[in-house]
Amino acid sequence: MATGGRRGAAAAPLLVAVAALLLGAAGHLYPGEVCPGMDIRNNLTRLHELENCSVIEGHLQILLMFKTRPEDFRDLSFPKLIMITDYLLLFRVYGLESLKDLFPNLTVIRGSRLFFNYALVIFEMVHLKELGLYNLMNITRGSVRIEKNNELCYLATIDWSRILDSVEDNYIVLNKDDNEECGDICPGTAKGKTNCPATVINGQFVERCWTHSHCQKVCPTICKSHGCTAEGLCCHSECLGNCSQPDDPTKCVACRNFYLDGRCVETCPPPYYHFQDWRCVNFSFCQDLHHKCKNSRRQGCHQYVIHNNKCIPECPSGYTMNSSNLLCTPCLGPCPKVCHLLEGEKTIDSVTSAQELRGCTVINGSLIINIRGGNNLAAELEANLGLIEEISGYLKIRRSYALVSLSFFRKLRLIRGETLEIGNYSFYALDNQNLRQLWDWSKHNLTITQGKLFFHYNPKLCLSEIHKMEEVSGTKGRQERNDIALKTNGDQASCENELLKFSYIRTSFDKI
């Protein structure tokens, strides 16, 4: 039985969820670079991206490699990797027998973001014989899940209580170790020597080791999670996991709180800001991140802002960003909400898709409305799209047979046209069989910064309504002859009103 693990408890099935942008060198404390989270699957090609990484700022997932063999891993080693800020997950990587050479110096898994409450997941690794993470000293947050690894031993010899604050939620089941077939031998045991430290858990006094050649490092209890030197002297209180010299914040392997210019500090002093819960960055760093993602459509890219001495992905609820200094300031009234469309555009074809934009005031991208039916549609669209004030790209209304009016965009005031449909149009209306009105132009103002209007096959939309939009939106004169079809717009509506004058002759039985 794995020490510190839980057996036999019912657990939810383990679901495996399925960018080499360097964020800056980590400095003297770390020998390499800070790398983003990685999802490495199918083959070993991307694994080489770990070569210079000291910190993975995010998670590391290595999974679904069915053609790899043990010899493929023999020359692979990433000794610079010290810390993973989120979680480490391995799933069905064939041929991998140990992690001792792959990650010989991995010391800390912070667990800032977890995989279903777990910071370390080893699942269905069919050839893994031992973990071998002999320098792993601290899992700051989260638990361990090690399950269905039929060859995995050296679990009962690990004292997880020396690595985690609590072992109650560890789930370590259905491994070879369960069948008591392992016969784990710690260093020196074969020669009758006791080389590794022994600890007591559940009444068992057991030597602690990761492999037959690597003991588990056990520091004096007084050192807590700070770690200790090879001689057993406690590291500085700002260290986490390990250090090369005692009581020196510049000799830590990793930091308990924050890293700044080669030393570990309790908090980031001005003019620095907390970033990702582990390091200090200056304003320029946060500003660069903001600008890199301002026009990016890459998933996970955030326009970072500053709030409460932190550089964070977005302002919290009730705050909006001051564009001059990136500071989050309290909103006066309802907060603006910028919604970034991942692929640059979004099609609204149902109430469900409209709900995804609920509360958005600025759309960074283009909207395509293609709704053919739905219950209580006008009210639903207004509830979900009615706060949109600005669209950076274009607005396209296409084959939306259920629409009679666009009044559900009740606050839309600006279409920038930074991206144009077919390279020309910022407003595009095609084949809307029941569209009769755009907006009530006596109450609604709309500016279209650039781009043209396109109207074709809107049989109940009168040309007068379209011409009014040209005047109000500032697009009059931009359109070419064929942009607004004269014969297919309003051709099934009563669009022309003329005053009919009647004269009559009164007659009676005795007068003409």
Rank of each mutant, 00 (worst) to 15 (best):
L29V: 05
E33A: 05
E33K: 05
G37L: 05
G37A: 15
D39G: 02
L44P: 05
L44Y: 08
H48P: 09
L50H: 02
C53N: 00
V55I: 15
L60D: 00
M65K: 02
M65T: 07
F66T: 02
K67E: 14
R74K: 09
D75M: 14
D75G: 03
S77W: 10
P79I: 05
L88H: 00
L90Y: 02
F91R: 02
V93F: 09
L96I: 10
L99M: 11
N105S: 10
T107C: 03
G111D: 00
L120T: 03
I122E: 03
E124G: 01
M125K: 00
M125R: 00
L128C: 03
N138L: 07
T140N: 07
T140R: 06
R141T: 00
V144P: 03
R145C: 03
I146G: 00
C153N: 00
Y154H: 05
W160I: 02
W160D: 00
W160C: 00
R162M: 10
V167A: 09
D169E: 14
Y171L: 07
L174R: 11
D177L: 08
D178E: 09
D178S: 05
N179Y: 09
T189M: 02
K191Q: 06
K191C: 02
K193M: 12
P197K: 10
A198R: 13
T199S: 06
E207A: 10
C209Q: 01
T211E: 15
Q216N: 00
Q216L: 02
V218M: 05
V218A: 09
G227E: 01
T229S: 10
A230I: 13
C234L: 00
E238C: 03
G241T: 05
C243W: 01
P246T: 03
D247M: 05
D247V: 06
P249N: 11
C255D: 00
R256D: 06
F258G: 04
G262W: 02
P269A: 12
P270Y: 13
P270D: 11
P270C: 09
S284I: 03
H290V: 12
K292W: 14
R298K: 11
G300I: 10
G300T: 14
G300D: 12
I306W: 15
H307I: 06
S317L: 07
G318S: 10
L326E: 09
T329L: 11
P336N: 15
